[in-house]
Simulated assay, not measured.
Amino acid sequence: MSAASVLDAARARGVMIATAESCTGGMIASALTAVPGSSDVVDRGFVTYSNAAKQEMLGVRADTLDRHGAVSEEVAREMAAGARARSQAGIAVAVTGIAGPGGSAHKPEGRVCFGLADASGTRSETVDFGPIGRDKVRQSSVDHALRLLASALG
């Protein structure tokens, strides 16, 4: 799914987009804004790499972080909902994961949690890309986030 087609779908629905990114560090917003004319449907991107930033900028609850950890669907949902609530966007996508190197048996390298918030609610999912390397995990996460946006806007 291309960023341009996501933008076209957002235009057709009259919806602004926001992103909330941890492991991708702004790459989703960058992919969207690389397309000329994207300013009519991209509102903003939040890069919240630290837990403190997730709390301060997006309203992720400390209790959620403590109970589930930053790489969790619970945090991804709160990130997406927070981005939507703190922007002019009608849809927000969030990503938090372990790009690598490293990880643990419980949260392995390549595990990425996604959140999506729009008028119909907030949902999440986890994708295990595997230990394919930091750059590939991050790019795969961008690609998946664009597919999630396209599906929700479709």
Rank of each mutant, 00 (worst) to 15 (best):
R84V: 13
G102R: 07
M79I: 07
L58N: 07
I17H: 04
G130Y: 04
S30T: 14
A12T: 13
G45P: 06
G82S: 09
A52Y: 00
V71H: 10
A83D: 08
T126V: 15
A76I: 08
A80C: 12
G26V: 12
A12G: 15
D43V: 02
A94R: 01
A9T: 05
S50M: 09
G69L: 03
R84N: 08
A92R: 05
D43S: 12
G103Y: 00
R111L: 13
S72T: 00
A53P: 08
G37K: 10
H144P: 07
T19M: 03
L148A: 06
S104H: 10
A62M: 08
A92D: 01
L148R: 11
G115L: 00
V42D: 02
E21P: 08
G102I: 01
F46V: 04
G59E: 05
D118R: 15
V142N: 01
A117T: 05
H106C: 05
S5H: 13
L149Y: 08
C23H: 04
P101R: 06
I17F: 00
C23K: 03
A99T: 13
S140D: 06
A81T: 11
H144T: 14
E78I: 12
P131C: 02
G103E: 10
Q88I: 11
M79Y: 10
A145Y: 07
K107F: 01
R111G: 00
D128V: 07
L32K: 08
V47D: 05
V47G: 01
T48Q: 00
A34T: 13
E78S: 02
F129G: 00
V35T: 12
P36K: 02
E73P: 01
R77T: 00
G82I: 09
G102A: 04
I28Y: 11
T33K: 03
P131S: 11
V60S: 01
A81G: 14
V95D: 02
R61T: 06
I28A: 07
Q139C: 09
A53T: 13
F46C: 05
F114H: 01
G130S: 09
H68D: 05
R138A: 02
I91C: 06
F129T: 04
C113F: 06
D63T: 15
V137Y: 09
P131N: 10
R77A: 14
A89M: 05
S72I: 03
G130D: 09
V127F: 04
T126D: 03
E125I: 08
R134T: 15
R11C: 11
P36F: 03
R44A: 01
I28L: 14
T126S: 14
T126Q: 12
G102M: 04
G14Q: 08
Y49W: 09
G69R: 11
A34N: 15
A81H: 14
D8G: 03
L146I: 00
R44D: 12
R13C: 13
Q139S: 15
V15H: 09
G103W: 07
V142D: 01
G102V: 06
P131H: 04
Q55G: 08
G100W: 06
E56Q: 14
A18R: 05
N51S: 12
H68A: 11
A99D: 09
A94V: 02
L149A: 10
A10Q: 00
R138W: 07
V47Q: 11
I132N: 07
G133M: 05
